[in-house]
């Protein structure tokens, strides 16, 4: 049996050697169940050990291995060679992020944005552990659950042209996380977070391209979160107009 192979283009960038990225082509044995991540591991183990990329869980939950597969943001562990074979595959680091090296991008700005939106329960008053858990019905939980499923992989930022044009925009994942806490019945921090939402860089930086929700590997639907926040922000604005300050 002759071994099937597939060609993979990897965008390389080694900051200590290169001034700009270049493409390196590898020929990798093909099997139908092989993921892009496994192909990269094959490359690192057997073809060129200097290719750098992030990965860990292999099961689409840790959010490490985001990259562009044929210009579409994907998780390497959840994209499979079979969906491209026998065509050549092109792999590039996540768009809209600076390239640290090879397929590794600089995530600092993304992480900073997650940090800034106050992603924690701000209770009305401190609840004692002896009082037990909050009551929260499945209905109340359903209001925010979807927006709590984000794995912080950054695919939505790579899909967002608004973030590409102006990276001051808070962006899809952070705003979805903000919505997650605002919509949680245990939380009372909405007023604080609406200040972030109402800013120019908040929800109004979004022009509803909607591609973020298409590429999201966890169906978080950040575009929906942002539109819902826009409604809240508009309400805030209207109420503000009639409220003497």
């Amino acid at each position: 049996m002759s071994e099937l192979t597939i060609e993979i283009d990897v965008l390389r960038y080694r900051p200590e050697m290169d001034n700009e990225p270049f493409t390196q082509t590898f020929e990798v044995p093909y099997t139908a169940e092989m993921s892009i991540l496994e192909a990269l591991q094959y490359i690192k183990d057997h073809l060129d050990s200097t290719v750098s990329f992030r990965w860990s869980c292999r099961m689409a939950i840790c959010g490490s291995c985001g990259l562009m597969v044929n210009s579409v943001p994907k998780l390497g562990c959840k994209a499979f060679l079979r969906d491209y074979y026998p065509q050549k595959i092109s792999l590039e680091p996540l768009a809209n992020f600076p390239i640290e090296r090879d397929l590794v991008v600089v995530m600092d700005d993304f992480i900073k944005k997650l940090e800034e939106i106050k992603p924690y329960i701000i209770p009305e008053k401190e609840k004692c552990l002896s009082e037990g858990t909050y009551q929260q019905t499945p209905e109340q939980m359903a209001k925010f659950k979807q927006f709590s499923m984000c794995i912080n992989c950054g695919l939505c930022y790579a899909a967002c042209p608004q973030y590409a044009l102006d990276n001051k925009f808070t962006g899809p994942a952070a705003l979805a996380l903000l919505a997650r806490y605002n919509r949680d019945s245990r939380d009372n921090g909405e007023a604080e977070r609406m200040k972030i939402v109402n800013q120019e860089e908040g929800v109004w930086g979004c022009t509803f391209v909607g591609y973020c929700s298409v590429v999201c590997p966890k169906d978080v639907d950040p575009a929906a979160a942002i539109q819902l926040l826009k409604v809240e922000s508009s309400k805030d604005y209207l109420i503000g107009m009639f409220k003497p300050d």
Binding site: P15, E20, P21, V72, P161, Y211
Partner: peptide
């Protein structure tokens, strides 16, 4: 520092390169 993060320019025709963006535009 030996770091030298590379920032890719957004091409002017970015919206032509992906059907989804073209439709949006």
């Amino acid at each position: 520092s030996k770091r030298k993060p590379y920032i890719r320019e957004l091409p002017r025709d970015w919206w032509m390169k992906q059907l989804f963006y073209t439709k949006y535009m």
